[in-house]
């Protein structure tokens, strides 16, 4: 455990020193604050709906940006740094600790970068709509961090699995496109080929194949209500056996997306001849 903490701290230091965290914090914070400020200024909606509408835009921002940045940072931490990597490998450190430690460090780095952005945006929202949905907002930030975890793990896996390291970034970029766009298009297309009752079940099960979908659906349900999905919301809640269970299933699904790729990655790394 001590090794993992040390590695995590080391990883954070690397990303803070090389300004990744700072740059990302500025870009993300600026966008989030702009969405919160202008979203509310033009919306003119007070109360809970004002909150729900503004945070829905923040959710969208998170769904595009966080997977991309997480994938890049995850990939870079194993494929980017030549000398630092070799230095680490010659240390008396178990290779699985290396993966978990780096994952934790990266996760905290992203938490730092997004935390200030989400925090500032949250302050603007709170000033405008009052206490409507503070807990919901905190849960939403939690969702965003789980999304980061999933894509960091995927990035690490891609980096370790690629034979030639520079290629890893290409794969990572492909993964981003795949999960953010192609996957949903594929499923939507597929649902038109199968009979109606199967199609509904297919849609709900397909959510688990894509962490972006899991976080998007769970995030909307947190920030607004399952009613935002209309009839599909009824089916979804029924499919999982209640609103609470739907949340649990989607969140557990997302966490698994964080753990499984990392577990695969450390398995690969242990067997790898460096």
């Amino acid at each position: 455990m001590g090794t993992i903490a040390t590695l995590a701290l080391f990883e954070m230091k690397v990303h803070i020193r090389n300004r990744w965290v700072l740059v990302f914090a500025f870009v993300f914070g600026f966008t989030a604050v702009a969405i919160a400020a202008f979203g509310l200024a033009t919306a003119g909606v007070a109360g809970f709906q004002g909150f729900a509408r503004t945070t829905a835009s923040l959710l969208n921002l998170a769904l595009y940006v966080i997977p991309l940045v997480s994938l890049m940072m995850g990939t870079m931490s194993f494929a980017g740094e030549k000398n630092a990597g070799e230095l680490l490998f010659v240390q008396p450190i178990a290779r699985e600790s290396l993966v978990w430690g780096k994952l934790l460090g990266l996760m905290l780095s992203i938490a730092i970068a997004t935390g200030s952005g989400f925090g500032l945006a949250g302050m603007i929202i709170a000033a405008r709509v009052g206490s409507a949905g503070v807990t919901r907002y905190l849960l939403f930030v939690g969702h965003a961090l789980l999304l980061a975890l999933a894509f960091l793990a995927l990035g690490i896996l891609v980096a370790i699995a690629s034979a030639r390291k520079p290629r890893a970034f290409g794969y990572a970029l492909f993964l981003w496109f795949f999960f953010v766009l192609f996957y949903d298009l594929l499923v939507i297309g597929l649902t038109f080929l199968v009979p109606e009752p199967i199609a509904n079940r297919l849609v709900f099960l397909s959510l688990f194949g894509n962490p972006v979908d899991l976080v998007r659906v769970s995030g909307f349900m947190t920030l607004d209500n399952p009613t935002i999905f209309g009839a599909a919301g009824v089916m979804l809640v029924k499919f999982f056996g209640g609103e609470g269970w739907a949340h649990v299933a989607l969140i557990v699904g997302t966490i698994l997306w964080g753990i499984l790729p990392a577990w695969l990655a450390q398995g690969l790394l242990r067997r790898q001849d460096i």
């Binding site: 007070a46 709170a126 206490s131 503070v134």
Partner: peptide
């Protein structure tokens, strides 16, 4: 409807900023 300004609503995101900057 206008929900009154709440100190707690403000403190939670403020803590988020503080923690991030502090950790950084």
């Amino acid at each position: 409807e206008r929900i009154p300004f709440s100190r707690w609503a403000f403190l939670a995101p403020m803590a988020m900023v503080g923690l991030s900057v502090g950790l950084f």
